[in-house]
Computed example of a mutant assay.
Amino acid sequence: MFRKKLFVLKQPFMFLFSWRPFPWYELISYVAMYASVPMLAYGIHIYSWEVIRTIVFTILTLYSGFFAALIWNDITDADVDAVVHPNRPVPRGRISPRKFFTVALVFSAMTFVFAVFISLWCLLLVGVAALFVTFHNKYLKRVVGIPAYSEIFTPLQWVVVPIFGYLAVFSNPMFLSQKNYVQLNAPFLGPLWVNSLSLSNMILLAIFTYFTDNAHDLPEGIHDVDGDRKLGIKTYATSFGEKNAAKISFMMFIISGVLGIILFMKTILSLVFLIPFIIIWTYTIHSSYLLIKTDMENIKDMGKIMGRKGFDYFLMSYNLIFIDISLQLINHHFHII
């Protein structure tokens, strides 16, 4: 009896290994992505165990939150997926929404626990983010009548990544290594140590994240337009048409690239980041332009391909930040020696 109960308990988690066909590089890229933000916020200094601990718990928190949000999205969008993604687990019946919800709750609990190990500020942020994701996915994107509402607000889930990474550093005494900081205190939450340069860099990275993620969301919305239109979900494609959504996505990719260059100019990033970033951005812009030129018969299929390319550009941008700072840290270490 005990073994049977244990098997039933394990089933939803074993299912995760075949849940979605994640490319191997994507799963690795998330680690680099989540680590890159506190590394960028902290700068080129000697890494104490406290700094490393903060980066590790940032990765664990954001990775758990990623799975929790994605599972919740699959549960709430099961009716949409039944039209445009019928092979996904819930509409196909490979797992029940109830079991999947249990898995989402476990990942959510892990997210909160890991956040506590960083600071109460980080716990507050993931709590607010969890509430937003819950109500946005389940209710708001289906009932709010604002044109393109769903794709205007969905990217805010990814904006949590840069804000969380910086907040993990701001709420840790390790930030005292920075110059011209100001200490802010809040009841129960504890102190924050911030300076104007780091705060402006956080805002810039958050805006970059918003446009970069949204630029790839729009082509995916073109692919999902039939299911979204059937259920009254307001995306750019359902609100303004597929062609206009492709044009708006193209403009967002342009804005994203400009913001990436500004990020290089304002932060500690070097040419190790800038040169490959411009190459990848140029390729993505070209692919986005081809989407605009695609005829209506094939635009949905092309939207799926462009959505994947756009998301790879999004991930690679953060990976380049991680690689750049890692190489600078290695160089800094050997110079000290």
Rank of each mutant, 00 (worst) to 15 (best):
V84H: 12
L176S: 14
A32C: 11
F164H: 03
I323G: 07
S36F: 06
W24L: 14
D79W: 10
I44R: 04
V159F: 11
L197S: 12
P162T: 05
L156A: 07
K99W: 10
T209L: 01
W193N: 12
S256F: 01
M33A: 09
L327H: 10
N244E: 13
T61H: 08
F101Q: 10
L274G: 07
D224N: 04
R98F: 13
P173W: 08
I255L: 10
L167F: 05
R92M: 14
D213V: 15
M306K: 12
R98Y: 13
G310W: 06
S326D: 06
K10E: 15
K247T: 04
I207V: 14
R20D: 13
F273H: 06
P23L: 05
F334N: 11
G307S: 10
Y42E: 04
W193P: 02
P91G: 06
F107G: 02
S108D: 09
R3V: 12
E242S: 08
I59R: 00
S108H: 11
F13L: 13
A237D: 01
I336T: 12
V126A: 03
F211H: 04
A206E: 10
I248W: 02
P91H: 07
N172A: 07
Y318W: 11
T238E: 07
L259P: 07
L167A: 02
Y313D: 07
Y313V: 08
A186P: 04
M251I: 12
V31F: 10
G127N: 06
N195T: 09
L140E: 03
Y166V: 01
T267K: 00
P173I: 05
R308T: 11
F67R: 06
T209P: 01
Y34M: 09
G257S: 06
L274F: 02
G232P: 00
E50M: 07
I248S: 00
G65A: 00
D312A: 12
H333A: 13
K230D: 00
N195W: 03
H332G: 09
P155V: 00
M265Y: 12
V143M: 05
T282L: 11
Y289N: 08
A104T: 11
W158K: 14
A129T: 11
V37Y: 02
L16A: 10
W193M: 11
L6R: 11
Y210A: 00
F208Y: 11
R229Q: 10
S177Q: 15
M265A: 13
T102Q: 15
A35H: 02
K234A: 08
W281P: 08
R20Y: 12
Q157C: 13
